[in-house]
Design a protein around this nucleic acid. Sequence first.
DNA 1: AATCGTGTTTGTCTTTCTCAAACATTACGC
DNA 2: GCGTAATGTTTGAGAAAGACAAACACGATT
Lengths: 267, 267
Amino acid sequence: MDDSRPADGPRRIKSVQTASEILAAIQRRPDPTFSDVCDELDASKGTVHTYLATLEEEGFVAKVDGRYRLGLRLVTMGETVRNETPLYRAGQLEVDKLADETSEYVHLTVVSRGKEVTIYESRGDNAVATDYHLRMREAPQYLHCTATGKAMLGHFDDDRVRDIIDDQGLVEQTDNTISDTDRLFDELERIRERGYAVNDEEELRGMRSIGAPIRGVDGDVCGAVSVTAPTSRLSGDRFRSEIPELVMQAANIIEVNLETTTFDPSR
Amino acid sequence: MDDSRPADGPRRIKSVQTASEILAAIQRRPDPTFSDVCDELDASKGTVHTYLATLEEEGFVAKVDGRYRLGLRLVTMGETVRNETPLYRAGQLEVDKLADETSEYVHLTVVSRGKEVTIYESRGDNAVATDYHLRMREAPQYLHCTATGKAMLGHFDDDRVRDIIDDQGLVEQTDNTISDTDRLFDELERIRERGYAVNDEEELRGMRSIGAPIRGVDGDVCGAVSVTAPTSRLSGDRFRSEIPELVMQAANIIEVNLETTTFDPSR
DNA sequence: AATCGTGTTTGTCTTTCTCAAACATTACGC
DNA sequence: GCGTAATGTTTGAGAAAGACAAACACGATT
């Protein structure tokens, strides 16, 4: 009856959770004013004020003429994360090369907490949907409707896939999105067989992608690479063999780089 | 006598400061274990543990086989910061173009809290010192010894420059670094006159750069762009006119983009 | 088998958050 | 130009949460 007790679980720092919510609120809103931020949180004005002052002092938030933004410290820290991801160092050049060869968008992604994050992107000369891709990188994306995501899911154990589906659901981003668990498992089977994944307007209408998984030194999938293009430019042979071939080659080369590159623990 | 009182100033959330310190500690150390993190903080093990668990849950920290890293949420948030910096959207293509034309490293930077942060970097085909530039982007850099930094300082008022010098000092990164206030002011005068700044091995031995300021719609400097190359490739006419010309052109075009592009507040 | 190192959990005291309300400051209407 | 509203900032004091230390678990190492 009395549910207002300590409610024991593992302990957390509530203030850190609150700060995290505030950052999320600022990220969500375009250019929030102080009261905009207050509206999104349920905490008193005074409290929010103290948090914002602290976050600003620490560089996580910046105030530009009366409005709040995320601070540049997030840029430098994000850079550190990328640089310390072996996949980034192993794959960057290859991704650039692939973008050059195809003239389209190329993405290098990793999985984190049931979604995927783009660790590096290269824009070929003809790449389209710049704005979409810009925004897309601001948040982790679903795995079930992208070529990279499906390529990676295809090489996880079924249990892990099931957990992800349970957590994230199979949100229909377009009419083509696979939103049925059984159909998704069939699709993953096919992906394993042929070695690459196809996203046929499942994420965004009018856009197709081809993605291939990248296995790390331990043999587990540690990321994926993909080429994305408008359907009109990604059809026929190019869709069925040329681009898949190039993507798988790139994935393969990145795997080799991963195995042969030493990532110095030196300062 | 009793100095251990509240010591009033503006209020801050201590837990957020602590969390920030923990993130800084993880960023500093290569791949810290739990006790590595404890060593860098003065807080009890139990406390640090609760913080790390919270930060991990929020995605700011990730635990990879027993060692801590900064989490991928920092990547997505950093991406948001870049995308919401008008200079990035206005300058990205131009920076790529300049890297193509020169085949060297090109940087687009902004000032924040007395230092500069690289908001975008493009690597030309011959660009050298990749590792240095990778690491450099992980932390804000001094303004007094880079071409971009000096280009921007040249267009701040003297008071602002003096404040920055007081805060940051004129650290000697190489033998060529300008570490004397008067000499720096003379240099800034020259920079204003000719419209671009030169970094002649002042940041890193063997490397020169040419940087030009970028003025925003309000007329104030909002960033800078630079080309960086080994001294052997950046001398003679190329150093004295060709590259400066290209850099100033790029800066100019970015300024025009800034004025003409509308940054939609739409979702 | 015992000790040491590393990481996790818990009881308790203390600090610090948080709220609400009062206080500034700027914008707005008339 | 004055009053009113809206927005942001500071403060006092109760309530909640953080911090420490010590105990606990688990492996590795001798």
